[in-house]
Design a protein around this nucleic acid. Structure first.
Length: 879
DNA sequence: CGATCCCGCCACATT
DNA sequence: AATGTGGCGGGATCG
């Protein structure tokens, strides 16, 4: 078999390495010879000379499974052979004649023989499951590829999955270190825990029913959040390999996806996961809509992963028959209980510990390693963070890279936050009345949250509606607040929320969010770049913007779903996505409403979709764009930088207008938040905003919301670690009131938390206030609508003062925002179509664009990238 | 014909 | 620029 492959390969692809001798050995090159004698040979038994022959033997010896497989092969081999040989021969001969010689390959080994699963078995057969700790086995990809007779690409597929389970780790360029299964149980345990956090409920749902939108809904949310975690989870460092360093690059989706997939099994009660469900859960971003192709791609990848896992003996293929029919599925046949080797201290009950996750994260055992790299593109300001670093503890990470540490911590934090948020959301949902503003806080002392068990998070408000979300544990919300930092003055200790305050913040890295209406223009421009990042290419640039706009307009509602991006470029585009996992959170603000959603034209929106999407409407129009943009943005985030952008309200009018239409009915508020995660691993972002106060309620909603939101924050990522925060306080007026109030509220402040130093960013907004707005009637959504705030760097600048960097900010409130003001947007208006809208948040992250940013100033602003994911929330209602 | 999933182009990352 | 990595999806096979 090998031979054939090899020969084929060789010609085509130049082999990077040498094809190894083996092939030569074979020498014969079957192909060449017109004869085609060969095939026969291999059939039943491996040829002695085949490189693989030995492997096969080993394999057989190694496990029963394998043996079975081999048997199967044998079974059909004869058949194949006979057939093949015949046909080929004849054909060949004919054809052959002259030259064509080669061509035929008749003998093709049959697809199965080349399957990834089989290849993986061969691969695994080469290494001991439980190697002695002393020896480290290094794996050379080139070597293995040649030995196994496959392209290197295939080896990556295998190794990536194995790496996700920590069976191997990358040590260097073409080198991987084989760890074996010693840590497998621990890894699984970790994944299980993480999975529970993330997917716990979800899976439960699915298992019972899937389809309901609701469920989906729920799942989506969860997903998002979780993602963050995932990344981090990986740690792996295991044993010896210290190399831990292995972290690496971006987010590799295959790795992450593999972990998530495994998590699903571990979390599932039945231990059976169908591919479609898994694909749905694993699809991040863009939700729905668009994605048929995306779904398909995801499924393909899952097959790849499943093949490897099957070879590892962790899962097996089964079919489940459900109402709808029989669906392909996989059943977990690996270990279910894991002794905790590691000694993690766990035990805390969820309740008691607010953030369970956190701790763990923090603690040494896990590190999340996120990958390391991030880029630091950030500007100096960010760097400052480091300093703060000293302050904090470092967790385990290696000294060497501080950054990493941060990330790790960061991750943990994020995770925690996520958890908290979720809960909060849940709670909120339950009690709408509350509405808290969000608050988050970090503890002063520590900078980040994370580390501690933190209470950080916060969330606000929201009334949410979100349907489903639940989180797994309960955490009390209160817990969260514990300390608020400064921000609120009010509080101080109390966590309570202030009613007004909105916001919160977060950590670092990533991003931010934002809110409000934004404008498109700005966004666009910026975004685009970002977008590119994602893909780089082409589309991004030009196309995007416009396209987006357009679309948006059309969709509006629909759009939320993210589709936007997708839509277009869809195919190619995917690139954007790269990012992966993002998370998002969201909260909806509004309680009510949404009825319209359906009605709305959204194009496609069906109700269901809405849900899924979560979008907010808010300004809807904008939103969509934003979304797109976001998508575009890169997620990379690694950079983390983040910052926010803002947008302006600018044109209020226009915006309003649209809004009115659409929204008019609905009022929403958008608030938002979200965050995204970013890039790769680690980061997450969050976001939120909240805006509003509680009261806000409906009506005003529209108005309020936008404005209110203050939002934002962002940290940058770069290093990440820092948190940031802000809070604005705002008061909101309450709800009932007309909005005007809210506008006023707008301002924000933020404070930094403890150390501010680190933080980079923040933002505050002030609010909005705008005159215009204020008055606005509550109801009308339109007007207000737009509020957007943002923080964009620009704004910041504008504000003058503030720069991101500086800590300066601290304390003060910065503000920014604008609401209506037109000015805000500096941007180029020109551009593009004006579509409307605006986006809402977006993060700009992007690196890519820095340029733009840069331009602005020198300041830096920028950030990063990450993309952020957006979320949306919709208000849809709760209903 | 739907389920699988190989293959390898090509973008992106690292050297 | 070369080379390592790995996303992705066309389209071939399998069942």
């Amino acid at each position: 078999e090998n031979i054939f492959d090899r020969s084929r390969m060789a010609p085509k692809t130049p082999i990077k390495n040498e094809p190894v001798d083996l092939s030569r050995q074979k020498g014969c090159t079957p192909e060449r010879n017109p004869i085609t004698p060969v095939k026969l040979v291999d059939r039943p038994q491996p040829d002695p000379w085949t490189p693989t022959a030995n492997l096969k033997m080993l394999v057989s010896a190694a496990s029963p499974d394998m043996r079975d497989r081999e048997k199967k092969k044998e079974l059909f081999r004869p058949i194949e052979n006979s057939e093949q040989s015949d046909t080929p021969d004849s054909l060949q001969y004919d054809m052959v004649d002259d030259s064509t010689v080669d061509e035929f390959e008749k003998q093709r080994p049959s697809r199965k023989q080349k399957s990834l699963g089989l290849l993986c078995q061969k691969f695994l057969a080469r290494y001991p499951s439980y190697p002695l700790s002393t020896e480290k086995t290094t794996i050379s990809l080139d070597e293995v590829a040649s030995i196994l007779g496959v392209e290197r690409r295939r080896i990556y597929d295998i190794v990536n999955v194995l790496e996700s389970l920590h069976l191997v780790s990358r040590v260097a360029k073409n080198q991987y270190c084989w760890h074996g299964r010693h840590n497998l149980s621990q890894t699984l345990k970790t994944l299980q825990e993480a999975g529970e956090l993330q997917y716990g409920e979800l899976m439960t749902f699915f298992q019972h029913k899937e389809q309901d939108l609701e469920y989906k809904f729920g799942e989506r949310k969860k997903e998002t959040t979780p993602d963050c975690q995932d990344r981090p989870l990986l740690d792996l460092s295991e044993p010896d390999c210290t190399s831990a360093s292995a972290n690496s690059r971006k987010d590799k989706s295959l790795r992450i996806m593999s972990q998530k997939f495994v998590m699903l099994f571990l979390v599932s009660k039945t231990k059976i996961v169908t591919l479609d469900i898994a694909a749905k859960i694993l699809i991040e971003e863009t939700q729905d809509t668009v994605d048929h192709s995306k779904f398909k791609t995801k499924v393909r990848r899952l097959y790849d992963i499943a093949n490897v896992l099957t070879s590892l003996g962790l899962i097996k293929k089964v079919h489940v028959t459900e109402e709808r029919g029989r669906k392909p599925a996989f059943k977990w046949i690996g270990p279910v209980e894991f002794p905790g080797k590691n000694g993690e201290p766990r035990g805390h009950s969820p309740t008691s510990d607010p953030l369970p996750g956190t701790q763990r994260g923090a603690s040494a055992p896990y590190q999340i390693c996120a990958t390391g790299k991030q880029r630091f593109t950030r500007h100096a300001s960010f760097n400052s963070t480091q300093s703060y670093e000293g302050t904090r503890r470092k967790v385990s990470s290696e000294p060497s890279s501080p950054h990493q540490e941060r990330q790790d911590e960061y991750c943990s934090k994020m995770i925690n936050l996520a958890a908290v948020c979720r809960q909060k959301i849940e709670e909120d949902t339950r009690n709408p009345s509350i509405t808290s503003p969000l608050s988050l806080l970090p503890v002063p002392g520590d900078s980040d949250f994370c580390v501690n068990p933190l209470p950080q998070a916060v969330f606000p408000v929201v009334q949410a509606d979100m349907p489903s979300l639940s989180l797994p544990n309960g955490i009390s919300s209160q817990a969260l607040h514990p300390s608020m930092p400064a921000a609120s003055k009010t509080e101080n200790g109390k966590p309570t929320l202030l009613p007004n305050q909105p916001f919160l913040c977060f950590p670092s890295s990533s991003l931010f969010m934002l809110c409000g209406g934004l404008q498109e223009n700005n966004l666009r421009e910026t975004l685009p770049t970002a977008g590119d990042a994602g893909n780089r290419r082409a589309e991004a640039q030009a196309a995007v913007p416009p396209a987006a706009c357009q679309k948006r307009s059309s969709h509006k509602c629909a759009s939320p779903s993210a589709p936007v991006d997708d839509e277009e470029p869809a195919a190619k585009k995917q690139t954007m996505e790269q990012s992966d996992v993002p998370l998002s959170l969201v909260v909806p603000k509004k309680p009510f409403e949404s009825p319209k959603a359906e009605s709305t034209p959204g194009s496609g929106c069906t109700s269901a979709e809405h849900l899924e999407a979560f979008h907010l409407d808010l300004a809807s129009p904008a939103a969509p764009e934003a979304a797109d943009k976001e998508s575009t943005k890169p997620l990379d985030s690694q950079e983390q930088e983040k910052w926010s952008q803002n947008k302006d309200p600018d044109k209020p009018s226009p915006g309003k207008e649209h809004i009115s239409k659409e929204n008019a009915n609905q009022p929403f508020l958008p608030q938002y938040l979200y965050v995204q995660p970013t890039a790769g691993l680690s980061s997450f972002n969050f976001l939120f905003s909240a805006n509003q106060a509680p009261g806000a309620i409906s009506l005003a909603a529209s108005q309020l919301p936008s404005l209110s939101v203050p939002c934002v924050v962002v940290p940058s990522a770069a290093l990440a670690s820092f948190p940031l925060i802000c809070s604005p306080t705002i008061t909101s007026p309450l709800s009932p009131v007309p909005d005007g109030s809210f506008s006023a509220a707008a301002s924000m402040n933020f404070s930094m938390s403890g150390l501010a130093s680190t933080t980079p960013v923040f933002i505050g907004t002030t609010a909005v206030v705008t005159p215009k707005v204020s008055p606005a009637p509550p109801v009308d959504p339109q007007q207000p609508a737009h509020p957007a705030l943002h923080l964009s760097p620009m704004l910041a600048q504008s504000c003058g003062a503030v720069k991101l960097d500086s800590p300066v900010c601290m304390g003060h409130p910065v503000t920014l925002l604008k609401l209506q003001q037109p000015s805000s947007t500096p941007l180029t208006p020109k551009s593009i179509r004006p579509a409307r809208h605006e986006a809402f948040f977006k993060t700009p992250g992007s690196l890519g664009d820095p340029v733009a940013w840069k331009k602005n100033d020198g300041n830096q602003t920028r950030n990063a990238s990450s993309v952020q994911r957006r979320l949306e929330i919709s208000s849809t209602s709760p209903d």
